[in-house]
Design a protein around this nucleic acid. Structure first.
Length: 337
DNA sequence: ACTGAGGCCTACCAAAACGA
DNA sequence: TCGTTTTGGTAGGCCTCAGT
């Protein structure tokens, strides 16, 4: 068992930022030689840094092999904290930049397409107006990897709907999750569809229709599945599986197909594509939009301003629509979880 | 308070040895 | 064979301390 590490004599004086940087390079490249090449020093210099680190910490950080090195459990632990340490430093430098000019900074946002169009857009409009020099880097593609990217600090924040990977039990302790606004899932047809003229629809009547849905592991598929199951029916035939909002809207507009949308997306596209929600209630169809950030990570001031701006935008929209039935509860007053 | 000498520490390299 | 470790050496920066 390694001895208890004395911070003053072993770490405070002996462990340097440069050592961590060299160590991270070695782990990333899987070789001391390659790391040396990248850092522009000789391989023995790298070897010595690693040996000193291991000596200071009293544990083996790397397993050496004929094809290079791999991190031990201790190495993995140190590497993970090193990433966090370098990120904090980077944030510190960004803070200094921000303090010298509060309108600059970069915000990396993970946000699926269905949220970016309807909910993110007005937030961006307001925020960009207030902070024209701030750079927004928005990833709308790899929604399933958002949790990992957030944990790896590749994203500052993620906007997503409830029931997403970030709220899985094994990940929930890593993130701060805040409900930004409420939304709900609705069944949508084109205005040419015969269903569009109906005043009341039972989900069971739609069993023989052609559906466009997302894949089985996604929440909107599961809501429809539950709705049919409640009526003692299997899932209907799926004509097309896609997450693309545009593909679904375009195909539903033909009048032959049925799909689901969040209410916010429908409100945005209803006029443009000629879409109509069906008057039927789905079980457990509330689908709140949430903001997640990495717990225990200091957010840069510009990111904090962006989140505050997001809260302001949904709050003012909620107040503007209070008393009307147009949005049916969408963008209700933001509340913290 | 400043300066210079001496010692120590750190970073680096080349070459040889080691090991899977 | 490829990659790591060890050895022996150099150069430069930093610290301490005595002298001015």
């Amino acid at each position: 068992m390694p001895r208890r590490i004395d911070w003053e004599s072993q770490i405070g004086r002996r462990l340097r930022l440069r050592d961590l940087y060299v160590f991270s390079s070695v782990v990333r490249l899987g070789s001391m030689g390659k790391a040396a090449q990248e850092l522009g020093v000789s391989q023995p210099a790298v070897s010595e840094v690693i040996a000193d680190l291991e000596h200071a910490l009293g544990v083996r950080l790397l397993d050496r092999g004929p094809q290079g090195v791999s991190a031990t459990v201790y190495g993995v632990a140190l590497e993970r904290r090193s990433v966090a340490a370098f990120d904090e430093l980077k944030q510190g430098i960004k803070d200094i930049e921000f303090l010298s000019d509060p309108t600059v900074g970069e915000i990396r946002i993970g946000c699926p397409e269905s949220i970016s169009a309807a909910i993110l857009q007005p937030i961006i409009e307001k925020f960009s107006g207030q902070h024209p020099a701030a750079v927004l880097d928005i990833d709308t593609v790899n929604t399933l990897s958002f949790a990992k990217k957030l944990r790896d600090r590749e994203l500052d924040l993620v906007l997503a709907r409830g029931g997403w990977p970030l709220e899985s039990p094994e990940l929930v302790t890593d993130f701060n999750v805040e409900t930004l606004c409420d939304d709900e899932l609705v069944v949508v047809v084109g205005q040419k569809s015969p269903w569009a003229r109906r005043r009341k629809v039972d989900i069971a009547e739609l069993h023989e229709e052609q559906w466009i849905l997302t894949s089985e592991d996604r929440w909107n598929y599961q809501v429809i599945s539950r709705a049919f199951k409640q009526r003692g029916l299997d899932m209907p035939k799926i004509a097309m599986k896609t997450i693309s909002v545009h593909l679904r809207a375009n195909n539903v507009a033909t009048g032959r197909l049925i799909t689901t949308f969040p209410r916010s997306v429908l409100d945005l596209y209803a006029g443009r594509f000629g879409l109509k929600p069906l008057p039927l209630e789905l079980p457990d169809s509330t689908w709140p939009v949430k903001i997640a950030t990495l717990r225990k990570r200091t957010l840069s001031p510009v990111v904090e301003r962006f989140i505050a701006c997001a809260r302001d935008v949904v709050k003012s929209k909620a107040q503007a629509t209070k008393g009307t039935n147009g949005l049916n509860g969408l963008l209700a007053v933001a509340r913290r979880v």
